[in-house]
Design a protein around this nucleic acid. Structure first.
Lengths: 132, 132
DNA sequence: ACACTTATTTAGAACCATTATAAACTACCC
DNA sequence: GGGTAGTTTATAATGGTTCTAAATAAGTGT
């Protein structure tokens, strides 16, 4: 069971709920973006038994902490997550309110010239807003 | 009165409340970042009469629409705004939860190679996350 | 100055995503 | 199997933001 090891290796107990959420999030061809509500719906569609909303929140946060998910920095009333945890960027279509991946290779190298004393760069994320 | 014209020119009636908010936001040396709560506090400090929270929200949104303020795309429980409406970017210090301006000149030119059909780029914003 | 229309302000309620709570349950280790 | 710590769960609470509808103020024409 591929997800059992993944979870155990990061100190998370492989519970039934977490494994089911892993299936929904990671057992797919393409990575994708989602809100908690959208994830809850996907779980309902794929699964017989119900998973509590609190568990969905807990699990998503646990996965984010372990680096299996990334939060997408965007101003919205709901938080967006990404199953693509490689370094990459996003288009945000203001008209359709849709996120589109922008691979690192689609953006020239970004050179941050300014340094902040005693701090190191953890990530560099580009958000390109689109309109019609 | 400098702000009266500014407001009238953009179709906003120069009310007492809006003018007071203009003073707090724009009549300062440096641009700055703020949340609605922080702005409310600044208004309280600088002003005798109270401005309703709803008015603060209304005004900030009106100013944003007119291009006098920018929302900063960042995941936080509160929305951050910026009185610096020039093209620029941000550091976000994850430890202190502080935003720091990053001038365009501190970031090399960003070349977005991917195009989306029928959409044009409205803005390109870089968020650089920092940690200790 | 006055009347009239339209925009704005306001307090409070409503909304809704997210977080906290605390009790029941389950995985894991000996 | 028994004990312990981690997890799930329904539900309540929180808190930022938006909505509502009535009161007020600004603009416009006379």
């Amino acid at each position: 069971m591929k997800y059992i090891d993944k979870l155990r290796n990061s100190g998370l107990r492989p519970t039934k709920q977490r494994l089911q959420i892993c299936e929904v999030l990671f057992n797919v061809e393409k990575t994708f973006h989602f809100t908690i509500n959208e994830l809850e719906q996907k779980i309902k569609d794929k699964t017989d038994n119900k998973i509590s909303l609190a568990t969905v929140y807990n699990t998503v946060h646990a996965f984010e902490k372990k680096g299996y998910l990334k939060q997408i920095p965007i101003n919205s009333n709901q938080t967006y997550f990404d199953t693509n945890v490689t370094d990459h960027h996003h288009f945000y279509d203001l008209n359709d309110q849709k996120l589109i991946d922008l691979e690192n290779s689609d953006v020239g190298p970004i050179n941050i010239k300014k340094k902040i004393n005693g701090k190191k760069i953890k990530s560099v994320e580009v958000l390109v807003k689109l309109e019609d």
